[in-house]
Amino acid sequence: MSVPLSILDLVSIPEGSTAREGIAASMESARLADRLGYKRLWFAEHHNTPNLASSATSLLIAQAASVTEKIRVGSGGVMLPNHAPLMVAEQYGTIANMYGDRIDLGLGRAPGTDGMTAQALSRSSAEPQAFAQHIYDLQGWFGPDGTAHSTSILSSASLGTEVPIWVLGSTVNGASIAGQLGLPFSLASHFAPDQIDQAIQVYRESFSTEAPTARLEKPYVMAGINVMVADTDAEAQREFTTIQQMFLDLRAGRSRKIQPPVDPQALAGQLGGAAAMLDVSAVGSPATVKAQLDEFVERTDADELITVTYAFDPAVRNRSLELLAELWF
């Protein structure tokens, strides 16, 4: 069962590399994804971490759009509580005016960082009602008159761009908000697998075409999945230890850059909760990954998959993208 494939990029910084090098590698992958036929490339906002350079999401999106031609480019997502909604409208409207109708705006309510950093970034409320109002205002700023629904403030930079808005979430709460707003839902199943089936069910059951924010005639689910494709299962499993180490670091409160792969046996018995967080993954040779992706699509009935691939060596990531495209498209 084939559905569109997209890519989520957090702009990783391998040990021994810099943010500059991580961004350059990310842009090279963007060019490759564009040539290979992936549907969209999204960047995820994160802060106060040494292993990711995806903090200034709008700048990365603009740069990726400048080096690609066909692929949709967007945020997966902008953590709206960290931003003033008007500024988001102006930034993404500007990008849409520069690069046309291939810009997406995915919005989340989580801060994408620790509590102290979230407080330093905080610009708007994460409460569901405020979040919904901000989305409605953003739609107004992207609309034909360029003004929000709760204020007469004009955003000439975004006027008429009609940038499509997605709601991101990892639980039934986020799913319910997306459904009630009548907007497409991107499910963070690649790191939060516990409520996948319930969240998708809640989203579809709560979906409304009557909400003032509604932009779809029926529900649309994009589900996240970790992917590593290599020529053999053993090679892919070894490369996958890079993200396993990253999640072990996360759970242990250890702060370091992306680590090189190790023998999978070296991590045996250590993964525990980290393994559970990475439960939604497709890892192996092309045939193995194809079967795993098919199984996940059948389980979720997702309309689209967004894949996440971490690798210490950017060439390994690009090879995985190539093999994935060959087996899927």
Rank of each mutant, 00 (worst) to 15 (best):
S125N: 05
I95G: 10
S122L: 15
G169R: 13
Q129A: 15
N173D: 06
G143L: 15
A148G: 09
G179L: 15
S150E: 13
A118L: 13
D101G: 05
G93S: 07
S170I: 06
Y99G: 06
S158L: 01
M116L: 12
N82C: 10
A178V: 09
S124R: 10
L105K: 08
L107A: 04
A126W: 14
G146C: 03
G106W: 12
T151D: 04
T117P: 13
Q133H: 15
H149P: 09
H134S: 09
A84M: 03
A110F: 01
G100E: 09
S152A: 13
Y92F: 14
S124I: 07
L80P: 13
A132F: 13
M98S: 00
F131V: 03
G182R: 01
T94V: 07
S150A: 09
L86F: 09
H134T: 04
L168C: 12
T94P: 07
P144H: 09
G140C: 13
V167C: 05
I165E: 04
W166H: 07
A89R: 10
Y92C: 05
A157M: 07
G179S: 14
P144Q: 05
E90C: 10
T161S: 06
T117E: 11
L138Y: 12
S158A: 12
G100W: 07
P85N: 06
G160Q: 04
I153V: 12
D101H: 02
E127M: 12
F142R: 11
L168M: 11
M98V: 00
D101A: 10
I135W: 15
R109G: 05
V172M: 12
T171H: 07
I165F: 15
L183G: 00
P144E: 00
S122E: 03
L183W: 11
T161N: 02
V167H: 05
G169P: 01
T161M: 06
G140A: 11
V167L: 08
H134G: 02
G108V: 07
G106M: 09
L183N: 03
H134V: 01
I177L: 06
F142K: 14
Q91V: 02
L168V: 10
D145S: 03
W166P: 01
S152C: 04
E127F: 14
V88M: 03
A96P: 14
G108W: 04
A132W: 04
L154G: 00
S156L: 13
A148H: 02
S158W: 11
S158C: 03
T113A: 10
L183K: 11
S122P: 01
A178F: 07
A132I: 09
G146S: 06
S158N: 05
N82P: 09
G146N: 04
I165G: 02
L159D: 04
R123N: 06
G115W: 08
G93N: 06
G115Q: 14
T147I: 11
G140S: 15
V167G: 01
G182H: 03
Q119A: 14
R109V: 08
G112E: 02
Q133M: 14
V163Q: 02
V172G: 03
P128R: 13
M98R: 07
A130Q: 13
L154A: 00
H149R: 12
D145T: 09
